[in-house]
Design a protein around this nucleic acid. Structure first.
Lengths: 114, 114
DNA sequence: CAGTATCCTTGAAGATACTG
DNA sequence: CAGTATCTTCAAGGATACTG
């Protein structure tokens, strides 16, 4: 952690702190990592039922997680056609910004304690 | 995110998932980032009162955050001498493992939406 | 100085049941 | 298929007061 960058964060950019806090709050929710990893690994353009199955999340929780990811602009919800129930979820460009964080977390997770 | 690594995480290493989840839960707690940044920026070997002042955290919350960081082995608490109230907090080697995550988060925070 | 104890309120999780 | 609604439970936060 470079001092300049941190000064920037701490004193100049209070907004950054808010965004980071918010992202952490959202990432730490139950099943969130599982849901994100489905987007990262399987493919783009996923159906609700596919995500549900792959992430092993129930409808209620999955709905919550998806709308939270939508809120911070990491995924997009698209109805495939009018008057149909078909829906697809896509990742956005912002998903790439989050990837390094997930990779770092992965390394942390796989590393043995000391 | 490479597929191999993810397979490893998802199917082989359930423990990693637990550790990541736990780390996220802890990092997302209130004032946690502020506390960690104090350790990252100021120096090693900090007094309770220094951390309290720099992070702008009240005693109750700071005590909670410090013991959580201690629990996951990121910092260590050292009493400076017997029968004194002086205490110092130090970062451990594990602190380095967390740094990349903090840097990634920082980049996310400083980046504009889209 | 470095905390602890207590209370109160809010927010998230998980289960179950229901729907156009 | 893709959700919504409701309810109960439990964890976390913040404020205030107290202590060796």
């Amino acid at each position: 952690m470079g001092d300049a960058t941190l000064n920037e964060w701490e004193t100049k950019n209070e907004l950054a702190s808010k965004r980071i806090q918010e992202l952490l709050r959202i990432l730490s929710k139950s099943k969130m990592l599982h849901v994100i990893y489905v987007f990262g690994t399987i493919k783009d353009g996923l159906r609700f039922s596919e995500i549900k199955k792959s992430s092993q999340t129930d409808s209620t929780t999955l709905t919550r997680r998806l709308s939270e990811l939508e809120d911070i602009g990491i995924i997009e919800r698209k109805e495939l056609s009018k008057n149909s129930t078909a829906v697809e979820y896509h990742v956005t460009n912002s998903f790439d910004i989050v990837k390094p964080i997930l990779n770092s977390l992965l390394h942390y997770g796989l590393k043995e304690k000391n």
